[in-house]
Amino acid sequence: MNQEQYHLLRAARPSGADEHEPAVVAARAAAAALPGMNEQLATEHALDVAMGSALHRAEPPPGFETAMLTAMRAARGAADPPAFLEKTVLGAVQIPTVSETSNVVPFRRRAWLGWGAAAAAALVAGSVHWWRTAAFSMHRLKRELAGVSKSGVQLSLMSMDPAAINGWMGYYKAPRAGPLPDKLAALPRKGCHLYQVDGHPVSLECFLLPGMRELHLFCTPAAALLDSPPEGALPGFCSVEGCTLATWTRGGAVALLFSRESAVVIGELLS
């Protein structure tokens, strides 16, 4: 048995798919002539099977399939997201948008520019970093999110199952504003998403009213805002760019509920 035959047997697939190949058959015959070789290969085969079985038990995270299909659909024709929204899922799965994925090729092509660009970027990034992760005003957040809500939201997880949504949001550590008011919590849901705005996480849960009318509940840590509503106070109502907005703070997170419904309807839901 030569070294090539030895390597060939070690590279034979654990499923046995290669066993009928003439070269493998010949190598097996050669191995049988060597004392102890078959036992060594059998031990190795057992390890191969164990490793294969172990790796096959690793499963993608919950909601991943939906997120992946959503990203594929977006890549084939969805519009770019609003410019102020950064990569969507914080610190975990990043749903590539059309604009993000299209950045990959220029990065490769211009790799030789990397060092020069990196030096310049470091200067800019250093000075911008503080600004980007600094707290922002409620006024600005309301305006930006109203635009997102009006133009149609993107959902990483599309599901009506509250457990699936809770699992997804828990997995990605999406901010949530304490227990929701009962009537709101009882509404059917459409899905959820996680944005990053100026370095801060902003979660979205989409609820459905009869007639498939959507309610968009955004949440961000109160610490991300310069002027968050007082903790525990009753929801405040206002109108922003034609949307009814209710805001409140619970458990250190600020909730912003956008809808096209009247303040009376929303007030009833939150009562």
């Binding site: 594929m72 590539p96 994925t101």
Partner: peptide, 12 residues
């Protein structure tokens, strides 16, 4: 998850 999704998007 990120790599798998990027691959899926490139495939699309």
């Amino acid at each position: 998850a990120d790599l798998t999704q990027q691959t899926a998007v490139k495939f699309a």
